[in-house]
């Protein structure tokens, strides 16, 4: 019974009008959650957590660097799932959402690269190092940009979205390379210190802000994705009946 309700609800989200209503309703809550979690996370990160004994205060960059890096990769995985659904079942909403993941993911990749570079300056003594993890992250940024460029180059938005979905699935091979790059190659970038299962080599007092920031960034990804998808949907469907009806009934707000 519950399963059926979920299934029907999911299918209903495939319809543009319901998706529009859903995203208008949900996205403010996600933004609010993001604001709350970021506030708590940044408070902990800058005031509560004591300085590291080796890196002193510079490790505080971790709390924006690591969540962004995780989200840059998680965003790609989400985008790939949406792209696979779009290619297999040809659901239009997932095409749009997959396309709208790219600019947000690119933003997180850019944050990760920029903050990592700033962190590297005092710790490694260099802004940039051509090691495996940094290079593969840079490649991820260019894949994101390629997806955006490819989508924008088509006059027919739907065709552009489907072709870009193929590129998304091809680019997925980069994700494991980024993830395992610190294990496969000996690099300047430090290895895995945070584990979900088993012992983390990070002290537990450093964990809370990281968890808050990670949740915040995830909520933000969802909120921005809904907002952008809603806009894109409206742009594509501007001549369609449901948009016209909505515009006439509620005035243009």
């Amino acid at each position: 019974m519950i399963w059926k309700t979920i299934k029907v609800g999911f299918h209903r989200l495939g319809s543009p009008a319901s998706f529009y209503r859903f995203s208008t309703l949900v996205s403010p809550w996600l933004w609010a959650g993001f604001a709350l979690c970021t506030a708590i996370g940044i408070y902990y990160a800058l005031y509560v957590v004591p300085p590291d004994y080796q890196q002193s205060d510079s490790f505080r960059i971790l709390y924006v660097h690591v969540p962004s890096a995780w989200q840059a990769m998680a965003g790609y995985v989400v985008m790939s799932i949406l792209a696979a659904i779009a290619l297999i079942w040809r659901i239009r909403m997932t095409e749009i959402m997959a396309m709208m993941c790219a600019p947000i993911g690119a933003a997180f990749t850019a944050i990760c690269l920029a903050t990592g570079s700033i962190w590297g300056r005092p710790m490694w003594g260099t802004w940039w190092e051509w090691d495996a993890r940094l290079t593969s992250m840079l490649v991820l940024l260019f894949i994101y940009l390629g997806i955006m460029g490819l989508y924008a180059a088509f006059d027919d938005r739907r065709k552009g979205a489907r072709v870009a979905c193929i590129l998304i699935l091809v680019g997925l091979v980069n994700i494991p390379i980024i993830h395992f790059s610190v294990e496969w190659w000996t690099t300047l970038h430090q290895g895995k210190t945070i584990r979900i299962f088993g012992e983390s080599s990070m002290h537990y007092s450093m964990m809370p802000p990281l968890i808050w920031m990670t949740i915040a960034v995830k909520l933000m990804f969802g909120a921005a994705l809904l907002d952008r998808s809603r806009n894109e949907l409206l742009t594509q469907d501007r001549r369609k009946g449901w948009v016209q009806k909505k515009l006439k009934s509620q005035g243009v707000s």
């Binding site: 991820l140 260019f142 940009l145 390629g146 490819l150 980069n174 390379i177």
Partner: peptide
């Protein structure tokens, strides 16, 4: 132009 942007990240490895 797009062609070279797409090729570049994929041939890095």
């Amino acid at each position: 132009v797009l062609l070279s942007i797409l090729v570049f990240p994929l041939v890095v490895p």
